[in-house]
């Protein structure tokens, strides 16, 4: 078993190593000029400088923390709003016929409009920057959270519900102690999708013009010709996205809510 995993790890490293080598070769003397693709070492230096600020390589030296906090806050707030609305509505849609009939058609109608399509009207309503970003994140993250919570709640095994009822659960208890836990695997999948989308729409919103935020750094660096900073910001957004996903999944594991369904 161990050996197999080890092999799989090796296989997983082949492509990144090849890509990295290709990148390195491209940026060598006489290759692609640095204003299109900076070399790996330049990128690493700029990234470290972005975090620590002691070399002052770019105007953004030492500002990683400020921009990251701004971006993370927006994601948390936008995602939080999406989850706070999407989860209860989703669970209700999944279990209550009246909620499903009154909500679902409208939600799916709105869902067909791509999130990016909301950008112009959001800018009219909320102005450039903060408000638009939060609106776009909440809107885009809402749909996968809602749809998956509803799907999870509606596909709870009827036997589990019978078991809960015969053990004495009333309607409310049945919801909190059987339906929601049983719907968790699907619900968490929806939350993860929503969180990923939150990061995507964060960048879109921040591109419209905010003072702080990794998306703002990217746009600003493009205008000032700091190509390395664009790439460095992309890397940090990727890292934060991955990290937030790990924290989300980890916290649900901790709550013991992600036990694999047995074959019942």
């Amino acid at each position: 078993m161990k050996e197999r995993n080890w092999n799989a790890d090796i296989v997983g490293f082949i492509l990144p190593v090849l890509l990295f080598s290709a990148w390195y070769l491209m940026t060598m003397e006489g290759g692609v000029p640095a204003y299109l693709i900076p070399s790996p070492s330049a990128l690493v230096n700029v990234a470290i400088d972005f975090a620590t600020g002691h070399e002052k390589l770019t105007p953004y030296a030492g500002t990683l923390l400020v921009h990251s906090i701004a971006s993370v806050q927006r994601v948390l707030l936008g995602f939080g709003v999406a989850a706070a609305i999407g989860l209860p509505l989703g669970f209700m849609t999944g279990r209550i016929a009246l909620a499903r009939e009154s909500l679902d058609p409208t939600v799916h109608l709105i869902r067909i409009i791509p999130g990016i399509g909301w950008l112009p009207i959001a800018m009219v309503w909320f102005g450039v920057g903060e408000g638009t970003t939060l609106f776009l994140i909440s809107l885009a993250a809402f749909f996968p959270i809602y749809v998956n919570a509803a799907q999870g709640a509606s596909s709870v095994s009827p036997l589990l519900i019978r078991a809960g009822r015969m053990l004495g659960a009333n309607k409310m208890k049945l919801f909190t102690t059987v339906i929601i836990p049983a719907a968790m695997p699907s619900t968490v999948a929806g939350l993860r999708l929503g969180l990923g989308i939150s990061w995507a729409y964060l960048v879109l919103g921040e591109l419209t013009g905010v003072t702080y935020g990794l998306g703002a750094v990217m746009m600003d660096a493009r205008m000032l010709g700091h190509v390395e900073m664009i790439l460095v910001s992309m890397v940090f957004i990727g890292l934060f996205g991955r990290l937030s996903d790990m924290i989300l999944v980890g916290s649900f594991r901790r709550l013991d809510l992600l036990k694999e369904e047995s074959e019942q």
Binding site: L160, A163, M166, G168, P181, M184, K259
Partner: peptide, 17 residues
């Protein structure tokens, strides 16, 4: 249904979580 008439099903139907 009521706990007065507890049921053991053909499959265990335990709560997996």
């Amino acid at each position: 249904p009521s706990p007065q008439r507890a049921v053991v099903f053909q499959s265990p139907v335990l709560f997996p979580w």
